[in-house]
Each structure stands twice: as C-alpha cells, then as structure tokens.
Design a binder for these strands. Structure first.
Lengths: 336, 336
DNA sequence: TCCTGTTATGTAAACGGTTTCATTGCAAGT
DNA sequence: ACTTGCAATGAAACCGTTTACATAACAGGA
C-alpha cells in the first residue's frame, strides 16, 4: 500500500502538504491540491487509519455491550445506535456479554487501552462500577435500557414503573381483579420497578397483589412458557396475566393454549416492549410499547455529546411509552 | 495514563524489557519479570492498543457486515460469530448495511485502511466484488448466509435448494398438489435457489409449480402478511403455502387467520429457518432448520484460518438442515 | 522603501509501543 | 585456560501519520 511519502514524492511536495490535502484542503492552493489529489489517486493512496488514530489518540469507535445480541429488543436498540453512529462517523465495536461480569470489566479496559473512545452499555448492570476506582472513573459512558436515573453518567430508558402501572390499570379497568404476574428475572431492577408499577396500580384500585400469583423467570419465550406452566398448574383463579416482556407473554400464550384455555376469554395476557412478533400472535398481543430503536438513537446521540465535550440538554431522558391494545385482553365476565 | 517509559524507569530496566514482560514473559529472568510487573501494577500501566496495533499493523478486529442487525436470523449468526471471535481474541466491528451498496463498499476500505483485518459478510451480495479491481482483491473475506459456492473466498451456508426440496416433498407426501409459494425478494439468489428446490420436488411428483401461485415480497413479517394477502385474495385453491422464511410464514398465518381460515385444516403453511418464535405460533410452525449460530461460528473459524494463513479443511461448508415438523401442516383432505 | 501581516509550504519532532541487533555474563565443552 | 554458545538485557530504529514551528513569498500600509 502506498504511503504518504510516496504521494508526496510523486506530487513533489512535502508529506505535511499531502496530509493537509486530506484533512484541511482549504489550506492549500488550488493547484497544489490538484497535484496532490492526482498523485494520491494514481497510487491509490489511502491514509492508514491505524497511523492516524494512533497519532491523534482517538479511535472513532464506541463499544456497545449487549447482554444478548440475539434478543430482539436489544438487537433493535443496537440498530438505533448504529444508525446514529454511522451518521457521526463512529464505528461500533459490539460485545455480547452474556451477562458475564468478567467480559463486562474487559469493556472498561478497552477504552483505557485506546481501543474505543467510550462505551454504551445495555441492560441491567452498569459496568462502570466494576472499575477498580469507580468514583474516579471518567471514561465516556452511557447506559441504556437500565435504571439508575440518579447516576452521574447519562442514562436513557423508559419509566418502567409508570408503564407497568398503565398496563395494570388497563386490566383493572376491564374488571380484572385476580391478576397473575409473569415476572422476569428475580432481583433485576427492571423486574422490581415493573412489579412496583403493577402493585401501585392495584393498590389504587383497592386490590392487593397476590404474591402467590407471581412467578419469576427468564426474559425469554421459554422462560415465559415455563413460568406460565408453573403458575397455571398451581392456581387457576387468575383472569389475567401481566407478563414483563412480550417474549414471556408469547411463551405464556403457548402454554395457555396447550392447556386448552381459550384466549382471551378464559385468560387475558399482556406483554411489554411491543416487539413486532406480538402483532402477529394469536391472539395479537396487548402490550406497552418501548421505543427500542429510539432508545438506541438517543443513547448514541448522548455518547456523541460526551465525546465532544458538549453534552447539552437532558442527560437522563425518559422516553415515552404507549399502551398498544390488541386482542389478548378482554373484559372480565362477571360471574352472575 | 502511564507509559512504557515510566514503567521502565521505575523498574530500572529498558522499555524493551517491559515490552517483553507483557508479550513474551518467558524470555525474562524471574526476578526482572517480577520487578517489571510490580512497577506496571503500581502505575496501573496498560499498553496502548493503539500503539501496539499501529506498530504491528494488525487490528485484531474483524468487520461484520449485516443487512439488518435487527433481523432475528442475522442476529443469531452474529451471536455465533461473536462467540468464536471472543475465543480467539478478535473484536467485532459491526455495520448494518441496510442493503446499501455504498456502505458495503466502505467495508472494503476499512480493511484497506487498517481498521479491520478482514470482513465477514452476511446475506446476498459479496461486497468483495465491489472492489475497484475485484480480481486482484486479496482482503481476507468470508461470506455467510449467501450462495456463491464456487467462489475463491470461503463461504458458509446451507444447501438452500435441497432444504427447500425436502420441505416441498413433505407437503407433497401429505397429498398437497395445489401449493402456493410465498417467496422472498425477487431476484435474490436465495430466493431463486429455494424456488428451484420447490420446483424440483414438484416435478419429481409430476406436478408443475403454478406460477400464478407464487408471490414475492420482503423477508419479514409484514412482507409475509402482504404477500399472503395478495395471493389469497386472488386465488383460494391452494391447500398449502410454502414460505421462504419463518417471518414470512408467521405473517401469512396472521393474514390467513384474519381471513377466517382454520389452520392447518383449510390451509397448511410452512416456514424456513426455524427461528424460535415459530415454536410458539398458533399453530406451531413446521419449518426447516437453518443452524444460524453454527453458521456464524463456522464463518468466524474460517476467518481465523485465513487471517493466520493456515486455512485447512473445507472452505465451502454446507451446514446440515433439518425438517422440523410441528402443527402448521396437515394431510390434505381428499374431496370425495 | 521598509515594515508588517498573511498565506502557502516545508522541516522535524512527536505519538507509544515492538523488534532487530549488539552486548554482556556465565556455563559448558575441549 | 580458552573457546563457544546461550540467556538476559539494552540501544536505537522503526511503524505512518499529524502538527508545532520555521520559512519564504508576497501584498498592503506608512
């Protein structure tokens, strides 16, 4: 591959001039510029990114840490991040953490060793705190799809509690009182917040959440199917099930159908996230929309801000959610 | 951040020794090593990747070009790639091409300018041919989920034609003769190959594929729903629909149900890929399994091979597919 | 005419490691 | 005792850019 020196020789100028021809063409006289560009073209010269980046000590790369890239919700967030990154000339390094603390910690190291300029983390844990000296950790960091609104680093998420509350309210307004919960992973903050939302809504209606009707499990299709299995084999008195993700809900629908229940007549089921598949279920899933791509876009926009040291505006945006009503819920039939 | 020079001073050795302490500890005497490591620890020194990579002219990074990262199938492939990459110390740069030729071409440039050591491309087009001088293009390249088995670069995919054939055979063996096809994007090689598979199977049964029963569309839920809509509003004589992806199939199921058809009695529908959601549909989707994660793993393994110049074994593996039979298909009822 | 300021370009020093080659010390072989 | 070879380390060149600083040419103002 041709180097800057080759080009400079061919064009009869100094390497500095060639460099300027690419980085700041306005500084050169028209004829010099033309000469240089022609020489570069002839030699098919392209500046070595490696050398450039090394020189300026920036990578123009941001690291994205995803708990599971194969998960539809996360994949959509990444898609949003990617769009904004591309628009701003950043590249995306993607790491699938599989929820493993060690690989998360490695993420920090990547910016300390100049492999990435900053990191966007998706999901529960904020790896920043894994740093040996967390208080002083200054690496550019953005956290999305998590919680931690009070943190010092930017954060983009939704109001999980409020969203959960609105979903529960909807069910309550249709007369449901015996409501089961297909929760996500126990101990996760998202899980807790959504549960609090459910509980708050019920309390407002004067009903208390029956702890015997909540089942925890993975945020996945299989997890939902299993949770529903456990719940339904133990109790059959619930008229509705609040699932903490669409995947959980869809898994539960499968189980309910296998059990011979008619949906939604015998059992109403709701989801959370509004992934595309929910629309195509049978029955189509009533859920609450979480703007995944948008979350990714906003997260990357914030990252651009911190990298340019010109963060402005809200640094802890709560993106709007929305109840999307389809057919997996019906009014509870009053036993005469 | 501490530099190698700082460490060397503190440890009272030369920078070269420090360098060796990290890259080839065996070369040092035990006590020197200890001294150096202690100094490095004290200063919290970590070698700058940027400087290292620049010096050795490798990035330890491979670029993955995905047509759509939010697509479940591709996301799973990426997941497989990631696993192997991590095992081998490679990082993954991910670009969502959105099927855009320009960004694909930019991919090549990234390895030419030393931002990545090689590129794995997913999907239809092999960007390698976008290179200004394709014949001579020598960048490390692997193509997955595509076709082009006869190419000079490694390729990992399935036998689309055979897989499609087996699916069609299954339908035919259950008595179906009027079979519609919900094809993917017209002109795509995958689409053509699968169509050929369908056609071959039918010919073997002495039935010819009715061109009036094939509908093209996007490889997506919405695409499937629309194609089914068009097909079903035009012709109602098909007893079964062969969809070219699970998403298309699931979209079609929705449409069929909205039209009041009973599945599978009134209409059998089959998918392709075996994404997880297919198992949770109503009715659960009969499909042909494509080992997505495995494809990713194999692709990355091949990439490791070419990067180390020790490619061995099959460079055009065809991974095995498998018919997975669920309940979206039934034997055709003979009109008396 | 001389001084000053501006513009276009060149010179050379970084950037932070790795690696080749040279040097030293010491053990083993003759 | 003298050579030989190996192991451990150091000195310095090098990777391919960018950029601070120096220089030269030239225009405009006093």
């Amino acid at each position: 591959m041709a180097q800057i020196r080759d080009v400079s020789k061919l064009a009869g100028v100094s390497p500095a001039t060639v460099s300027r021809a690419f980085s700041d063409p306005g500084k050169l006289s028209a004829e010099t510029l033309k000469k240089v560009l022609a020489a570069a073209e002839e030699l098919n010269y392209k500046p070595s990114s490696l050398a450039q980046l090394f020189r300026v000590k920036r990578t123009n790369t941001v690291l994205v840490m995803v708990p599971d890239i194969a998960n539809v919700l996360f994949a959509r967030v990444v898609s949003g991040i990617e769009r904004i990154a591309a628009d701003n000339g950043y590249n995306l390094l993607v790491i699938d953490t599989k929820d493993n603390k060690d690989v998360e910690a490695a993420g920090i190291e990547m910016v300390e060793t100049y492999r990435a300029d900053g990191v966007i983390q998706l999901g529960e844990r904020a790896l920043r705190w894994l740093h040996r000296d967390a208080e002083k950790c200054t690496i550019p960091f953005v956290h999305a799809i998590g919680t931690g609104l009070d943190e010092s680093y930017p954060t983009v998420t939704i109001n999980n509690q409020a969203a959960a509350e609105s979903m529960a309210n909807y069910l309550l307004s249709l007369g449901h009182r015996k409501i089961g919960v297909l929760a996500g992973i126990k101990g996760r903050l998202v899980t807790q917040h959504r549960l609090e939302g459910f509980r708050a809504a019920m309390n407002a209606f004067g009903v208390t959440l029956d702890e015997g009707l909540v089942e925890y499990g993975a945020y996945s299709l299989a997890g939902g199917a299993q949770s529903a299995q456990r719940l339904l084999s133990r109790r059959r008195d619930a008229t509705a099930l609040l699932a903490m993700s669409d995947e959980i809900a869809i898994g539960a629908i499968r189980t309910a159908q296998d059990l011979g229940l008619r949906l939604p007549e015998d059992l109403s089921i709701t989801g959370f996230d509004n992934i595309e598949f929910g629309k195509y279920c049978e029955p189509p899933l009533t859920t609450v929309m979480q703007p995944a791509e948008r979350i990714g876009e906003v997260a990357m926009t914030l990252m651009c801000g911190v990298l340019r040291n010109e963060l402005k505006g809200e640094t802890h945006p709560l993106l709007p959610t929305e109840l999307v009503i389809r057919n997996s819920v019906c009014r509870v039939v009053k036993p005469a």
